[in-house]
C-alpha cells in the first residue's frame, strides 16, 4: 500500500469508517433480503467499498456523481442518510424516491447524486452532461461517473468519452472493474484493458488497485485536480471484486473458487485495518468500536426504513410531470 506520510492517519481512519458503514449496510440489507422482506433486485457493493470511499474523500459536497445499479456505496460515501436508504429499499414513503425507485434508482439529489440507474451505461452520458454543466455553469465543480467494467462495452461509453475529451470536460470516469459483467468474465468480452480505452480518446487512463483505499484516494485526487484545473477528463480503472453474485440470488458459480478466495484475502477492509494497525494509527479496539458504531447505526436505520409507511395509492400518479 502506497502511504506517503503520516498525514494519511486521520484520513485513513475516516475512510475505514466509511467502508465499514457501507459493508454493514450491505450485510444488513442482504439479511433482510434473504428473509424475503425486500422486493425487487439487490446488487450488493460489498468488496468494492474502497472505491466509493476513496473517490468521495476527494470531492466537494457540491460535486456531481452518477451511479449505476450497484450504487448503495456511492450514496453512503457521499453522505446520504442510511435510514432513508433502507426506507427506499423497502419501497416506503420516507425513501429518497418515496419508494418509487428502489435499490436500482436510489438517489439523494440534495447531495448532487444524479442517481443509481437500471440501464447499464446510461450514467456515462448523464454524468458527462453534468460535467458539461460544471464547465459552463458551475465552474470549479467536477462530475464523477461510476460505472462497471462491462458497461464500457456500451456505445454510450465511447460517445461520451470522446465528447468529454474534445470539450475538455471536468469529468472523472471511475470504472469499478470487478472483472465480470453478470456471468461473463472480462477476457471473454474485451480484448484490451479498461484503462487502455482512454488512449483512444486522447486522455489519461490509470490502473488503480481498487481494493487499496489509499491508492484510490491518491489516483482520484490527481484526476479530480486535473478536472478542476480545466485539463479535461481522466479514466480510472479500479481493479476490484464483488464478494457476492451479481445480485442476491446469483450463486456466482461461473467464478473460479480459488480466485474468489484469493480476492477475499484482499478485502479492502482487511487491507485498511492491517495498515492502521501496523502503523499503530489505530488499535484493534478502535476498529472494533467503528464496527460496533456501524452496526448500531444500521440497526436504527433498518428500523426506521422498515417502519416507514408504504406510499398511499395516490402516489402512483404523482411526479409523472413536474409543475
Amino acid at each position: 500500500m502506497a502511504v506517503e506520510n503520516a498525514a494519511l492517519k486521520p484520513t485513513l481512519l475516516d475512510l475505514y469508517r466509511t467502508m465499514t458503514r457501507i459493508r454493514t449496510f450491505e450485510e444488513t440489507a442482504h439479511k433482510e433480503f434473504l428473509k424475503g422482506k425486500m422486493p425487487g433486485f439487490l446488487h450488493l457493493y460489498s468488496g468494492q467499498e474502497a472505491i466509493a470511499a476513496g473517490v468521495m474523500s476527494v470531492l466537494q459536497p457540491d460535486d456531481y456523481i452518477s451511479s449505476h445499479h450497484r450504487g448503495h456505496g456511492h450514496l453512503i460515501a457521499k453522505g446520504a442518510d442510511t435510514g432513508r436508504m433502507f426506507a427506499e429499499l423497502f419501497g416506503r414513503v420516507d425513501g429518497f424516491c418515496r419508494g418509487k425507485g428502489g435499490s436500482m434508482h436510489i438517489a439523494d439529489s440534495s447531495l448532487n447524486i444524479l442517481g443509481a440507474n437500471g440501464v447499464v451505461g446510461a450514467c456515462v452520458h448523464i454524468g458527462t452532461g453534468a460535467a458539461f454543466a460544471c464547465k459552463h455553469k458551475h465552474r470549479g465543480r467536477v462530475s464523477v461517473i461510476f460505472l462497471g467494467d462491462a458497461a464500457t462495452n456500451r456505445g454510450t461509453f465511447h460517445e461520451a468519452l470522446n465528447l468529454a475529451a474534445i470539450w475538455d470536460l471536468p469529468a472523472v470516469y471511475v470504472v469499478e472493474n470487478n472483472l465480470y459483467g453478470v456471468a461473463n468474465c472480462q477476457r471473454d468480452y474485451m480484448k484490451v484493458e479498461v484503462a487502455g480505452r482512454a488512449a483512444g480518446y486522447g486522455f489519461p487512463g490509470v490502473t488503480v488497485d481498487g481494493n487499496d483505499v489509499a491508492a484510490v484516494r491518491e489516483a482520484a485526487g490527481q484526476a479530480v485536480a486535473r478536472a478542476r484545473a480545466g485539463q479535461g477528463p481522466t479514466l480510472l480503472d479500479c481493479r476490484t471484486w464483488r464478494h457476492w453474485g451479481h445480485f442476491i440470488g446469483d450463486a456466482a458459480a461461473y467464478r473460479d473458487p480459488e480466485e474468489h478466495k484469493a480476492w477475499l484475502k484482499r478485502d479492502p477492509l482487511i487491507l485498511a485495518a492491517d495498515l492502521l494497525r501496523s502503523e499503530k494509527w489505530a488499535t484493534q479496539a478502535d476498529l472494533d468500536r467503528i464496527q460496533a458504531e456501524a452496526e448500531e447505526e444500521m440497526l436504527a436505520a433498518l428500523d426506521f426504513g422498515k417502519n416507514s409507511p408504504l406510499p398511499g395509492k395516490e402516489e402512483l400518479y404523482t411526479h409523472v410531470y413536474t409543475g
Binding site: L310, P311, K313, V320
Partner: peptide, 16 residues
C-alpha cells in the same frame, strides 16, 4: 395500466 412509469414499491406496483 395508468399513464405512469412502473413504480418500485410493491404497494404502488400492485396498484399499477
Amino acid at each position: 395500466g395508468p399513464d405512469t412509469p412502473v413504480p418500485f414499491s410493491p404497494a404502488l406496483e400492485a396498484e399499477f
